[in-house]
């Protein structure tokens, strides 16, 4: 969290996202849907430095948030593997027409300690019928649920 908070990509533009997200899950399938607003905003530094007198932000409202996933085992299983199409990551919400493909696996060492790894494929232009590779993300780590 601190890394993201104090390492802005830009001192001129920031993005705020807020929304609501609900889910329907069974043993193998998960369907999560929600709505969100995405607000692009100028920083106070940008407003002062570039003498901007108006139009400090632009909002895209009522975007669709979704995550559709399939996993091979129930949640409580010692290991799992899943695949998902989603436009939501921890700190990134993409437009609803920019889905990302995620493959996820985890292994539970104990009830409160779990290792996970995930790989993401991002493409642009798929919904424009002109797909282009955009990026790849891999993430791994340990999740320790304190007090469980």
């Amino acid at each position: 969290m601190h890394f993201f908070m104090y390492n802005d990509f830009s001192n001129l533009v920031v993005e705020y996202d807020w929304g609501v997200f609900v889910g329907l899950n069974n043993e193998k399938f998960k369907l999560n849907l929600g709505l969100f607003s995405k607000i692009f905003s100028l920083t106070s530094y940008a407003i002062t430095e570039y003498e901007i007198s108006d139009n400090y932000c632009f909002a895209e409202n009522f975007g669709l948030l979704y995550c559709i996933s399939y996993q091979i085992k129930p949640d409580e299983n010692i290991y799992n593997l899943s695949i998902a199409i989603t436009n939501k990551d921890y700190f990134l919400l993409t437009r609803s027409t920019n889905p990302m493909l995620k493959i996820y696996t985890n292994y539970r060492f104990s009830e409160d300690l779990m290792w996970f790894a995930e790989a993401w494929l991002k493409t642009s232009g798929s919904f424009n019928l002109s797909i282009n590779y955009f990026g790849f993300l891999a993430r791994t780590g340990l999740i320790w649920q304190i007090g469980k």
Partner: peptide
């Protein structure tokens, strides 16, 4: 994204870079 349509726009990460450049 001025309205809700099934076609898409550049990825948000790229848009932020462009907005930064435009400012």
């Amino acid at each position: 994204r001025a309205r809700h349509i099934p076609t898409t726009e550049p990825m948000t990460e790229e848009l932020l870079v462009l907005l930064d450049l435009f400012v």
